[in-house]
């Protein structure tokens, strides 16, 4: 009796999981199919790895991957460096007006990008910074900074002040206290910030779409959307192959994402 119930629960759970996984698995299958097969059958099984070659070279996904890696890694690093410094300053130094600084730095939590994009774009355009990747990287670093900042602050708050004071008494400079004691203790939060900074920018469409209008600079979501935009020359299987390529970093980071997702969204406000 009990085991019959268990079987039923298991089947139900797998059916539910299939609802979420099936479209991705189908895209994986279709990415190896042909367009004519796709039009004829719902299960287009094939082994045409040429779609991946065509996506990588003809559809320039290789270029987009390179662009995305450049933008995402730079953004993750710059955002994390800025956030680590600011979080330590607010949490552990005798900074004055810290509430004001914290308010400015976490403004992104209440003002989504769409509320200031028009003017930001104006400013970027008048400075001649459209199609400038460094500008995009700096803007992205700031737009995504609020949650990692809160997470790092939560970590620095847990560092006992006596530990830092002991180092000061022993003659360590303020920089030494920060760099050699506080930063190593906040390492889990720093790694989380790097990983999520990378993932957020890897997946971000809006900022690149607004700032990078030159197709040779497109990031991968932009590139895949541009494949879709030519509806009349639509090469479905190639688009699916491109989509599968875009998942590779996410697959590689899956374990870390699963482990760190909780603290990444709550900014360390809730443990667990």
């Amino acid at each position: 009796m009990r085991s019959a119930k268990s079987v039923l629960i298991s089947v139900g759970t797998y059916v539910l999981a299939a609802v979420f996984a099936a479209p991705v698995l189908w895209v994986a299958i279709a990415s190896l199919s042909t367009n004519s097969l796709l039009a004829r059958t719902p299960i287009p099984i094939g082994l045409n790895f040429v779609n991946y070659v065509s996506a990588w070279i003809d559809a320039q996904i290789g270029v987009f991957v390179f662009n995305s890696l450049l933008v995402s890694i730079s953004t993750a690093v710059i955002m994390t460096v800025l956030a680590t410094m600011a979080a330590y300053a607010v949490a552990k130094t005798r900074l004055r007006f810290r509430r004001i600084f914290l308010g400015i730095l976490s403004i992104g939590l209440v003002a989504p990008i769409f509320t200031y994009i028009v003017w930001l774009l104006n400013a970027i355009a008048t400075q001649g910074l459209l199609n400038n990747r460094l500008a995009l990287i700096l803007v992205s670093s700031i737009v995504f900074i609020a949650v990692p900042l809160l997470l790092l602050m939560a970590f620095f708050r847990d560092v006992p002040g006596e530990l830092l004071d002991a180092a000061r008494v022993d003659g360590a400079s303020e920089w030494g206290v920060f760099w050699r004691i506080a930063v190593p203790l906040a390492r889990p939060a720093i790694v989380t910030s790097l990983i999520f900074g990378f993932v957020w920018t890897w997946n971000d469409l809006f900022l690149p779409a607004v700032f990078l209008q030159n197709p040779t600079l497109y990031t991968i979501p932009q590139g895949i959307i541009s494949l879709r935009a030519n509806a009349y020359t639509a090469d479905y299987v190639r688009t699916f192959a491109a989509a599968m390529i875009s998942t590779v970093p996410m697959i590689l980071l899956y374990r870390e994402l699963a482990r760190r997702a909780g603290s990444a969204i709550t900014g360390g406000a809730l443990k667990g």
Binding site: M85, A86, T93, L105, I145
Partner: peptide, 13 residues
């Protein structure tokens, strides 16, 4: 020191 650390992110924001 705190001011020096917090300024880059603040100015950019």
């Amino acid at each position: 020191f705190g001011l020096l650390l917090v300024l880059p992110a603040t100015v950019l924001t």
